[in-house]
Amino acid sequence: MSKRDYYDILGVSKGADVDEIKKAYRKMAIKYHPDKNPGDKQAEENFKEAAEAYEVLSKPDKRQRYDQFGHAANAQSANGGGYGGGSMNMEDIFSQFGDIFGGGGSPFDSFFGGGRQSGGRKVARGTNLRIKVKLTLEEIANGVEKKVKVNKQVVCDTCDGTGAKDKSAFQTCKTCGGSGAVRRVTNTILGQMQTTSTCPTCNGEGSVITNKCNVCHGDGLVRGEETISINIPAGVSEGMQLSMSGKGNAAPRGGVPGDLIILIEEIPHETLKRDGNNIIYDLHVNFVDAVLGTSIEVPTIDGKAKIKIEPGTQGGKILRLKSKGVPEVNSYQRGDQLVHINIWTPKAVSREERDVLEKLQTSPNFKPNPGKNEKSFFERMKEYFE
């Protein structure tokens, strides 16, 4: 399912300022807060979705990239996380956006007995996976769906990811009493201070396994293989990274899966070269065709195209084929194909050909006489790439 527009998620216009975005996010966060909607998975997803939208739109640099590239801007994130990747868990949200709730806690703490405190029960998160996907120039130009087999950690079917032999193989952690956190009171010069930290016995889960699963040995995870369909937008480039939320390694005991980071690699084309969104093609024409003019078919990423070589064409001339290049990511704009004309000089000629050429050699029309208005190769290249 495609990701929703961040502005639509928060219900603001693209011209909204930071205060409007913050106010809209706080409204959505309160509406879908897990403490207000216990056990409601959809509300929890909406809560995470709103946090993801706010995390991007509240930061000018990330917002600018999102406005320009949309969700494909995820690819510019070097590690695949924290920028629209859809991988934020509850701990991320409360630690990063505590100011939205007025001090790092939940706006519902007073109603639910203290709410989410630092060091409380943790939601496990799977690790990210990175793969490389090789694309042809044609696939890059048109966009493509790739199906790849990914070897990764998946939830153990035997114990359904719990790590226990059966439902009775759990007991409440005696250290924290099932809260997942331990509290310590220390005396300071300012009086007694209470600190809360994750329970070291159960690692914040509130329970411990008394009888482990025979298949995963308590991990809740096993190695497996999944075939994943990756929709790659047109216009990606070498080194760009895309992120797929929740397609990385699974997390134990019902945690949040990691992300799948896709690194783009370009397969060099036999005849075409890419320069940004433009395509470069070196066309070699013989001396006679350059003098008399001709029509020649040249390859493009969309197939063959016929171009006209005007009589008297000089070597180094550049012909532009509009919109025959690579499109911008998430844009209707497309680069051009630049055809660089090279005059082919034969290295050997027959006796008859030599006789003809020697007659032409002294002809006035064959003496170099460049006009003052003719631009140099570097001037032409500068003109085309500006």
Rank of each mutant, 00 (worst) to 15 (best):
N151C: 11
T186M: 10
K306Y: 09
S168F: 08
K147L: 10
G177H: 04
F170G: 06
N203G: 11
D336L: 07
I343M: 03
T162C: 04
V148Y: 01
N74I: 01
N369C: 13
D289P: 07
R354P: 00
I131M: 09
P346A: 08
S207V: 11
Y32K: 07
K122A: 09
A169E: 09
N151L: 08
N46F: 14
F69N: 00
G248Q: 05
S331T: 02
Y66C: 01
L221I: 11
A78Y: 08
K324D: 04
P346S: 05
K306I: 14
N369G: 13
K132D: 02
K48F: 15
V133C: 02
L135M: 06
G303F: 13
E91A: 14
D219R: 14
V215C: 08
N330L: 03
K174Y: 05
D166K: 09
M1A: 11
Q42S: 07
A348S: 13
Q76K: 04
K59P: 00
G235S: 02
R380G: 05
P257Y: 03
N187L: 06
Q314D: 13
T195H: 06
V236C: 01
G163T: 03
C199F: 03
I228Q: 02
K3N: 08
K165D: 10
S331F: 00
N211Q: 15
R183D: 04
C176F: 05
A29W: 02
V298W: 04
K31L: 12
G113D: 10
T136P: 03
P233R: 00
E91N: 12
P364A: 08
H33V: 08
T186D: 10
P107E: 01
Y66T: 00
N203H: 15
F111V: 04
K48H: 11
T196I: 12
L357K: 03
G239Y: 01
M240N: 00
Q337E: 12
I262D: 00
E139H: 06
A305Y: 13
Q337I: 09
H33N: 09
D157N: 14
H269T: 03
Y281V: 04
V256Y: 10
Q96D: 13
S229E: 10
L242M: 09
N369P: 04
E297K: 15
E352I: 13
P370H: 10
E45L: 14
E45D: 13
N249K: 09
G316P: 06
G119I: 02
G206C: 05
K165Q: 07
H217T: 12
V150K: 04
V144K: 00
I131V: 15
A181V: 04
V123I: 15
E139T: 05
G126P: 03
V18N: 11
G163S: 05
P257I: 04
C216N: 06
G161A: 10
R121K: 13
V154C: 03
I131T: 06
G143R: 01
P257E: 06
D67M: 04
K31E: 11
L283K: 05
D5T: 09
K146M: 06
D166F: 06
